[in-house]
Amino acid sequence: HNLTITQGKLFFHYNPKLCLSEIHKMEEVSGTKGRQERNDIALKTNGDQASCENELLKFSYIRTSFDKILLRWEPYWPPDFRDLLGFMLFYKEAPYQNVTEFDGQDACGSNSWTVVDIDPPLRSNDPKSQNHPGWLMRGLKPWTQYAIFVKTLVTFSDERRTYGAKSDIIYVQTDATNPSVPLDPISVSNSSSQIILKWKPPSDPNGNITHYLVFWERQAEDSELFELDYCLKGLKLPSRTWSPPFESEDSQKHNQSEYEDSAGECCSCPKTDSQILKELEESSFRKTFEDYLHNVVFVPRKTSSGTGAEDPRPSRKRRSLGDVGNVTVAVPTVAAFPNTSSTSVPTSPEEHRPFEKVVNKESLVISGLRHFTGYRIELQACNQDTPEERCSVAAYVSARTMPEAKADDIVGPVTHEIFENNVVHLMWQEPKEPNGLIVLYEVSYRRYGDEELHLCVSRKHFALERGCRLRGLSPGNYSVRIRATSLAGNGSWTEPTYFYVTDYLDVPSNIA
């Protein structure tokens, strides 16, 4: 807008934040220059609390790290170098490059900038070799853009010569660093050979998330399962459950009422301010606690030095998902009996873990797994792929695949051998790939016309006998059925096997 004052003059007093240069501009645009008398524009009460600059400061050096910015700028000295009290560095987070010096300023003089007072450097006698002032900004957020400017702080001049310097606002972004852990990993099994893994992005990506790394490792069953005799009275049979499938998407929606109208769909109840505040506090606490764990609990591995020492970490090797089922080394339970199943799973520490690289999504279907087997899954978020990966501390989750139908069934015939004193040795093959492992066998036998009897055969007993022995049988026709019990439950009964026990007292003698 054009402003013209045809008559009258300007009068400025007691404006401590208004620089004289701005008042002189007002004289020019209003056409009143030359009308004012000496005392109409006070030299001592206008701009006496402001830094009124008329020179431009330029930054000469900028260096960044993930949490620091090192700045240096060209030296500046007023005509009387004693008038320079120091520099004021202003900075704040700036997602967009549209910041002005006066953003967030209120009537009390406060604003949204963080201000650092910096002492002037030592003055050199040689004007050509003056030290460049600077400042190291610490405690910054990774991968965050900051708006920065600097200006001088000078003393009051009796001659009211307006001098000083100020830089333009520059924008500097800190470097990326390792992201925080992925949030809320959930693993479920939808079949006997697959596990579905879902997660949420890290709360602090500290860069642009480029991919996720998912490692999985087959877990050995508890050692007590191999040692305890679950045929003993009072000892509860062990059981394991597989990871249940995901709930429906509708039930997972946030901010939804727990109660549904019987007449149909209901609208979600909005969260109160107290609920939102509580969630923010919980989120802040979780982030602080995660940072504490990362800094205190997890110790970084030592990389190899120039002395030739090897990095103890196993090298990563990509495998196809079809090879995942046989990740671990199978060892027989008892070496003397080769027909026992290889369900003991000690994992070799030198073995390469299978892994998958996930790009542009937060889910993965891990296939080719062994049925009813526990897996430990390790999830890392990465925001750099080359020249070397920059990934987060791992988040861990466990899951067990679903049982395989008929995996616990005894394959092959049940054979028998009759000894003296009416002892019958029953023999059968253990299931080759049971659900988890076989903890015991149930032997059901009966003599024709009598009630059915049951015998429990422990895992250890089966390994020693290759089956079991029935003792003290009365003469007669017998039928026997056997079924295995694994961590997933009972298998199917075998087809009945028949044998006849004679009275050993009636056996004919070869003595003449």
Rank of each mutant, 00 (worst) to 15 (best):
N206Y: 05
G207M: 15
I209S: 04
I209N: 06
T210H: 11
T210V: 07
T210P: 04
H211M: 05
H211K: 13
V214T: 06
F215I: 04
F215M: 06
W216P: 05
W216M: 13
E217N: 13
R218Y: 10
R218Q: 09
Q219S: 08
Q219H: 11
A220V: 04
E221D: 04
E221Q: 03
D222W: 14
D222H: 03
D222F: 12
D222C: 08
D222I: 09
D222E: 08
S223V: 04
L225Y: 08
L225P: 07
L225V: 06
F226P: 11
E227T: 06
E227H: 11
L228W: 14
D229V: 06
D229Y: 15
C231M: 01
C231Q: 01
L232G: 09
L232H: 11
L232M: 10
L232Y: 05
K233A: 13
L235H: 09
L235Q: 06
K236W: 07
P238I: 08
P238W: 13
R240P: 08
S243N: 12
S243R: 11
S243L: 07
P245H: 09
P245S: 12
P245I: 14
F246P: 11
F246V: 06
F246S: 12
E247C: 06
E247M: 06
S248H: 02
E249C: 06
E249S: 05
Q252V: 12
Q252S: 11
Q252R: 07
H254L: 08
H254T: 12
N255M: 12
Q256H: 11
Q256M: 10
S257P: 10
S257N: 04
E258L: 07
Y259W: 06
E260F: 11
E260P: 10
S262K: 04
A263K: 03
E265Y: 08
E265D: 12
E265T: 12
C266A: 15
C266N: 13
C267K: 07
C267Q: 06
S268M: 12
C269F: 05
P270S: 06
P270I: 07
K271Y: 13
T272G: 12
D273M: 09
D273G: 04
D273V: 04
S274C: 15
Q275A: 12
I276W: 12
I276P: 07
L277W: 10
K278M: 07
E279Q: 06
E282V: 11
S284T: 12
S284Y: 03
S284K: 13
K287Q: 08
F289L: 07
D291P: 04
D291T: 11
D291N: 12
Y292V: 06
H294S: 07
H294V: 11
N295H: 03
N295G: 04
N295A: 11
V296Y: 09
V296L: 07
V297P: 06
V297T: 08
F298T: 10
F298E: 08
P300S: 07
P300V: 10
P300L: 06
P300C: 03
P300N: 04
R301V: 08
R301W: 07
K302C: 04
T303L: 03
S304E: 15
S304N: 15
G306I: 11
G306V: 13
T307Q: 05
G308P: 04
G308M: 14
A309L: 14
E310K: 01
D311L: 10
P312L: 14
R313W: 09
R313L: 07
R313V: 14
P314I: 00
R316T: 12
K317Q: 11
K317F: 14
R318D: 12
R319A: 05
L321D: 03
L321R: 10
L321E: 12
L321P: 09
G322P: 12
G322Q: 09
D323Y: 15
D323N: 07
D323I: 14
G325A: 15
N326P: 10
N326T: 02
V327N: 06
V327Q: 11
V329P: 14
A330R: 15
A330L: 15
V331P: 12
V331W: 04
V334Q: 06
V334S: 12
A335S: 10
A335W: 07
A335K: 12
A336F: 14
A336E: 04
F337K: 06
N339M: 03
T340L: 08
S341Y: 15
S342P: 09
T343Q: 11
V345N: 11
T347Q: 11
T347F: 07
S348E: 12
S348L: 11
H352N: 04
R353D: 15
R353P: 09
R353A: 01
P354W: 04
P354F: 07
P354M: 13
F355C: 13
E356C: 10
K357N: 14
V358K: 09
V358A: 12
V359Y: 08
V359C: 08
N360K: 05
N360G: 04
K361P: 11
S363G: 11
S363H: 14
S363T: 09
L364G: 08
L364R: 14
V365H: 03
S367P: 12
G368C: 10
L369W: 01
R370K: 12
H371G: 13
F372E: 06
T373D: 03
G374I: 12
I377L: 11
I377V: 09
E378T: 14
L379V: 06
L379K: 00
A381K: 03
C382Q: 01
Q384S: 14
D385V: 14
D385Q: 03
D385E: 08
D385T: 01
T386H: 03
T386W: 08
E389I: 15
E389G: 13
R390T: 07
C391H: 02
C391K: 11
S392T: 02
V393L: 11
A394C: 13
A394L: 06
A395V: 10
Y396M: 12
Y396A: 09
V397N: 14
S398I: 12
A399R: 07
A399K: 12
R400Y: 09
R400K: 05
T401L: 06
M402P: 03
M402N: 11
M402I: 07
E404I: 07
E404M: 15
A405R: 08
K406N: 00
K406G: 11
A407V: 04
G412F: 11
T415Y: 14
H416M: 10
E417P: 03
E417A: 15
E417L: 05
I418N: 05
I418H: 02
I418G: 08
F419Q: 10
N421G: 03
N421I: 15
N421R: 13
N422L: 05
N422P: 02
V423G: 15
H425G: 03
L426R: 00
Q429L: 09
E430F: 07
K432G: 03
K432M: 10
K432D: 13
K432T: 09
E433T: 06
E433F: 13
P434G: 04
P434M: 02
N435V: 00
N435Q: 02
L437C: 14
L437F: 02
I438C: 06
L440E: 03
Y441L: 01
V443A: 07
V443L: 10
V443S: 00
S444C: 08
Y445F: 03
Y445K: 01
Y445C: 08
R446H: 05
Y448L: 07
Y448G: 00
Y448W: 06
D450W: 09
E452S: 03
E452D: 12
L453N: 06
L455I: 06
L455V: 08
L455F: 05
R459T: 08
K460Y: 06
A463I: 10
A463K: 06
L464H: 09
L464V: 11
G467N: 02
G467L: 03
C468I: 12
C468A: 07
L470R: 01
R471D: 02
R471L: 05
G472Y: 10
G472L: 08
S474T: 10
G476E: 01
G476Q: 00
Y478V: 01
Y478C: 00
S479R: 14
S479N: 05
S479K: 07
R481V: 07
I482R: 01
R483A: 09
T485W: 08
S486N: 00
S486E: 00
L487I: 13
A488Y: 10
G489M: 08
G489C: 02
G491A: 10
S492R: 08
S492A: 09
S492P: 05
W493P: 01
P496K: 14
P496L: 13
T497A: 05
T497L: 12
Y498E: 14
F499T: 01
F499I: 09
Y500F: 03
Y500K: 08
D503S: 10
Y504P: 05
Y504K: 10
Y504N: 04
D506I: 09
D506S: 13
D506Q: 14
P508I: 05
S509Y: 15
S509P: 11
